[in-house]
Design a protein around this nucleic acid. Structure first.
Lengths: 217, 217
DNA sequence: ATTAACTTACAGTACAGTCAGTAACTAGCA
DNA sequence: TGCTAGTTACTGACTGTACTGTAAGTTAAT
C-alpha cells in the first residue's frame, strides 16, 4: 500500500521539451489566436501528438497561461524586476523594446491578439493581463514620480493618465503596424508619442482644446 | 426557359430583420470574439435558426464584414463624411466619442476584439480594418495640417506619427479599460493623451529623452 | 516495480455549411 | 378580382469536419 517512492522527479530533458512546446504554442496562438489555434498544430511543430501536450499541461487553458508567463520570462524586456536608477531609464527601455519588437512580428502579434482576446467571456488569459497591466502602469507611474520629484511637479491623476496612455500607445501601435507595416512605423511612432506624453507631464501646458466635456453629448 | 421575371425584390421587412441580425452578431462577436461566437447563438437572439442567417448573409465570413460596415454607419461617430471646418473640431469629436464609449462597453469590446483578431491568418475582417485605419489616419493628419497651417509649423513625418498614435492610444485604452474599468478611465485618459500629442505637434519641445536609438540593442 | 513520457484510439461536442422542403408573399395575367 | 407561377424567407435534418479531452496501452528511465 505504501511503496518506497510515490512520485518520480521529472526527467532532465522534460524542461527542454516543455520549453519547445511553449515556444511553438506562442507561435501558433500568435498567428491564429487562442480559440483558433489547435493543439494538434502545436504538437506537430514539436513532433508530438496533441495528447502529449495535454500530458504536460493538462488542458489548453493551462497551456495558455503558461505561455503567457513564459513570454514574460523569455522576453528581452525584463522590465518587471529592474530597479530604476534614474526615472528616464524605464522610458528609454520602453523605446528600445519598441525598436526590438520591429524585428519579431510573431511575438508582437501574439501579444496583440492574446491581450485583446483576453477580454472575451471566460478567457483563461484574462487574469494574467489584468495583473500585468496593473503592474506595468504602476512602474511607469513610479518612473514619472521619480522624474517629477526632481522638478517639484506632481499630480497623481496626471501620472495615472500618463502611465496608462503610454502603454496604450505601444499596444495600439502594434495593431496598426501589424495590419499595415509598410505605412506605419512601430518604434518611431511609439517613441514620438511617449515623448509627447512625458513632455506634457513634466512641463504641462494648456492644451489646444481644453474643453473636455464632462457629460457626453 | 425565360419567364417574365427572374428576381423578386426583397420584402419590406427584410431590411429590418437583417439589421436585427447585424445587431445581435455585433453583440455576440463582441463578447465572445469572431472565432468563438457561434451563428446559432446569434440566430437564437433574433428567433431564428442558424440556417436562416446563412440564407441572408451566405457565410459567417460575409456576416462579419457586414457587421463591421454596419457598425460604422450606425455609429454615433460619423467621422468619415464630415467636413472639418476648424482643425480642432475632429479632436473634440474624438474626445466626445471616447466619453460616449464609456456608456457602451459592448461596442467597445466588439471593436477591440475584432480589430486585434483581424491580424490573424486569413481573418475576413482584415481588409476592413486596414482600410479603416488608413482613412482615419489620413483624416487626423489632415486636421493637424489645418491647425498647423495657422501657425506655419509643419513636418509631414510628425503629422503621420501624431495621427497614428492618437488612434493607437484610443484603441489601447479600450483594452485596458475593458480589463479593469474600476482602475482605468477611458475617456479622461484618452483626452489627456490626445492633448499631449497635439501639444507636441503644435509647439514641439525637446523631449526629455531625445536619444532614440536607431539600431536596437 | 513503478513511474514519466509518450501514442493510438476513441468519445463527445461544437460548429459551418448544404439541401430539400414549406409557407407566405408578389407579379403578372385572365 | 382571383388565380398561379416564381420567388423569398425561412425550418429541420443532415454532413462533414475540427477539436478538446480521456483511457488504455507501450517504452524507457530510475
Amino acid at each position: 500500500m505504501s511503496p518506497t517512492r510515490r512520485q518520480l522527479p521529472p526527467r532532465p530533458e522534460t524542461a527542454e521539451r516543455r520549453r519547445d512546446i511553449l515556444r511553438a504554442a506562442l507561435e501558433i496562438f500568435g498567428s491564429k489566436g487562442y480559440n483558433n489555434g489547435p493543439l494538434a498544430e502545436i504538437a506537430e511543430q514539436v513532433g508530438m501528438t496533441h495528447a502529449g501536450i495535454l500530458h504536460h499541461f493538462g488542458s489548453k487553458d493551462r497551456l495558455l497561461v503558461e505561455v503567457l508567463r513564459y513570454r514574460d520570462e523569455s522576453d528581452v524586456e525584463g522590465i518587471e524586476g529592474q530597479h530604476i536608477p534614474d526615472g528616464t531609464e524605464l522610458f528609454r527601455h520602453l523605446i528600445r523594446t519598441a525598436f526590438a519588437n520591429e524585428q519579431r512580428p510573431g511575438i508582437v502579434q501574439a501579444y496583440a491578439v492574446l491581450s485583446a482576446e483576453s477580454v472575451t467571456d471566460g478567457n483563461p488569459g484574462r487574469e494574467y493581463f489584468e495583473e500585468r497591466y496593473q503592474v506595468l502602469r504602476g512602474e511607469v507611474a513610479a518612473a514619472f514620480r521619480v522624474m517629477c520629484a526632481e522638478q517639484g511637479v506632481e499630480d497623481p491623476e496626471t501620472l495615472d493618465h500618463a502611465a496608462a496612455s503610454i502603454l496604450a500607445v505601444m499596444d495600439g501601435m502594434q495593431v496598426q503596424w501589424l495590419l499595415d507595416p509598410s505605412n506605419v512605423t512601430l518604434a518611431k511612432t511609439s517613441a514620438f508619442a511617449i515623448e509627447a506624453i512625458a513632455a506634457q507631464v513634466l512641463d504641462p501646458r494648456s492644451a489646444p482644446f481644453t474643453a473636455a466635456p464632462d457629460s457626453p453629448a
